[in-house]
């Protein structure tokens, strides 16, 4: 959204609720911590394990998912009062697929290397539970702007975990970051840990992240 449009909207909405009210800020910050889609809700784990061997594809994937979640949330939220409830899942899927294919096409046109590396995983954003979950749980019942923030927040929460995983996996698995050979440049001989490059290594690592995060914020699953 351009700044002018944002300012204009802010002026218009000021009477009712500030654009980044405490409640709205929570929509961004909660998914980063106590409501993280990956570590707390355990959604989107498959792709989190698959695309995190290197920083670059992980970054593009995070960006792609954030865009898809935010845009689909806005679209569904704007249409929410017109969608017939009996076919709402189909409508949601159509909107999500629309954005996913858009992202895929743009990646193919402008960052071909990365799109080849991500291969099927961009297409599989369609089935990513985070996207559908946010549409059902939030966008169907809220206005477009909070829905946009909610989508952004969840995309970033997912992206954050992806980046942490990719950082550790690329640094200690291949000795590089964004393809830049860190250990070789520093002159430290380093033999990459092959386990980290395998999905199994990522799974162990993700488990550790979940453990650390939950012990910090004291989250317990309710039975």
């Amino acid at each position: 959204m351009s700044t002018e449009a944002a300012v204009a909207e802010e002026v218009k909405e000021k009477k009712s609720e500030p654009l980044l009210s405490k409640k709205n800020r929570k929509l961004i910050s909660n998914p980063l911590d106590i409501d993280n889609p990956v570590t707390v809700q355990i959604l989107g784990v498959c792709s989190a394990l698959a695309v995190t061997t290197q920083m670059k594809p992980a970054f593009v994937m995070s960006l792609g998912l954030t865009i898809v979640t935010a845009c689909s949330n806005v679209a569904i939220s704007a249409l929410r009062n017109t969608i017939p409830s009996r076919i709402r899942i189909i409508v949601q899927l159509a909107i999500v697929s629309l954005w996913v294919i858009m992202v895929d096409q743009i990646l193919k046109a402008y960052v071909y290397d990365v799109s080849k590396q991500l291969s099927v995983f961009v297409g599989l954003i369609i089935t990513n539970c985070i996207v559908m979950g946010r549409l059902e749980a939030y966008a169907m019942a809220n206005k477009p702007w909070p829905s946009f923030l909610d989508g952004m927040g969840n995309g970033l929460g997912y992206g954050m975990i992806l980046m942490i995983l990719a950082f550790v996996r690329e640094l200690f698995g291949a000795g590089s970051l964004f393809g830049f050979k860190v250990f070789a440049t520093l002159g430290i001989p380093y033999q990459g840990n092959g386990l980290l490059l395998l999905p199994a290594g990522a799974c162990i690592l993700l488990g550790i992240i979940i453990w650390v995060q939950r012990s910090i914020n004291g989250y317990r699953e309710s039975h």
Binding site: T82, I83, P84, I87, I90, V91, A94, I95, S97, L98, I101, M102
Partner: peptide
């Protein structure tokens, strides 16, 4: 409704 969604999405794609 579903016809309209299909046409709009198809057109954009």
């Amino acid at each position: 409704y579903s016809a309209a969604i299909t046409v709009v999405c198809g057109g954009l794609l």
